[in-house]
Design a protein around this nucleic acid. Structure first.
Lengths: 192, 192
DNA sequence: TTGCCTACTGTACACCTGGACAGTAGGGAA
DNA sequence: TTCCCTACTGTCCAGGTGTACAGTAGGCAA
């Protein structure tokens, strides 16, 4: 029948990577609380026991899977002249989200922080601080932290509307139009 | 001992109101999934059986407790001249949130929609549509729905940062400063 | 080939949830 | 006072969760 090969394969690195990818997807889709280890294991093609073996606890798996790479978020954004910073931020954010196919760590963090997950809140705050530090190198504004925070809030709100609510004009518009609108708003938040 | 009076009191209307108030608070604090009927019952001073008796199901209780009153959200906002619309929207929103002490239905909806609760998404979308219809009476812009959606996204993001994440400059700033900053951004989103 | 370390599986368990339901008692109608 | 409707309680249950752990079997070293 269609039990092709119940034979066990042995490949820790590959399986850990598969578990992490599945975890990112499931945490992004359902948020921390609604995500289950069993569902993650099923998508990764392993048993839930193996997930626990490698990552010990659901929370540790969450942190391992959703800790964003700060560098990747600001890659190429801080270069060039400051006047074009807003479009570069907008484009970087939108491209990142579109490429992830809804499984981006940031979405997982938003969904999970809403459910009061402490680890998610901490990671989001770290991300925020990283952004402040980065922009501080190229911008010289007294209330920089506040403006960056407002911008972060806006991006979270847009991500929420487009990828979580996933309905309405914001969800329907093209990436390019979204970038254009974000650019205008970000410019106002940062400089006006 | 300190069992003051195990005597039963009989007052359906009052208890239903207490249950709804407790439900609003718990749903806002924890989101739909993390909220439990038992916790709501405990805060309302009743048994969880009574909650089920009156509202049948957790989802029905959620809808009953968090369905926002559209009128209250736009009260006094649409009057007066259009040029001051942004400050009235900002002030109305901030005052509403500050007054609720973190138990506002909108926060419950945000927390719950993140966890993929269908009812919450539907209510948020209804709210969105109500806003579009309302502003359509005083504004004449071709892409009105899109702009209102972007504004709604921004408000969600700010609420998220201030009341859910509850940390950082946005959470720390005074209501008046928040209103001022929101006003500028809303003006850009609606008119630029 | 033999042996052994460890990646991997499957079962088991304690806990908590939403919901069902049989019973208890308040309080107005008669 | 008596009666009865129903607001209210407490117990019970099936289902699903995270985690612990005893056992199984790959595959490299010897």
């Amino acid at each position: 029948m269609s039990h092709p090969s119940p034979r066990r394969t042995r490949d820790p690195a590959r399986k850990q990577a598969a578990i992490l990818a599945a975890a990112r997807a499931v945490f992004a889709e359902r948020g921390y609380e609604n995500a289950t280890i069993r569902e993650i294991a099923r998508r990764a093609g392993v048993t839930h026991g193996l997930v626990v073996l490698h990552f010990s606890t659901k929370e540790q798996l969450f942190v391992a899977a959703t800790t964003p790479d700060p560098e990747s978020l600001f890659k190429g954004v801080l270069d060039d002249d400051v006047t074009k910073l807003p479009e570069r931020i907008a484009a970087s954010f939108v491209h990142r989200m579109e490429a992830s196919d809804g499984a981006d760590p940031v979405i997982a963090l938003i969904r999970s922080a809403a459910g009061d997950q402490q680890a998610a809140k901490a990671l989001l705050q770290t991300l925020q601080q990283t952004a402040v530090d980065g922009y501080a190198r190229v911008l010289d504004i007294p209330d920089l932290a506040t403006r960056v925070n407002m911008m972060g809030a806006h991006l979270i709100g847009v991500a929420f509307s487009r990828y979580v609510l996933a309905d309405g004009p914001v969800a329907a518009m093209s990436p390019d139009e979204l970038i254009a609108r974000l650019t205008t708003t970000i410019r106002t938040i940062l400089f006006d």
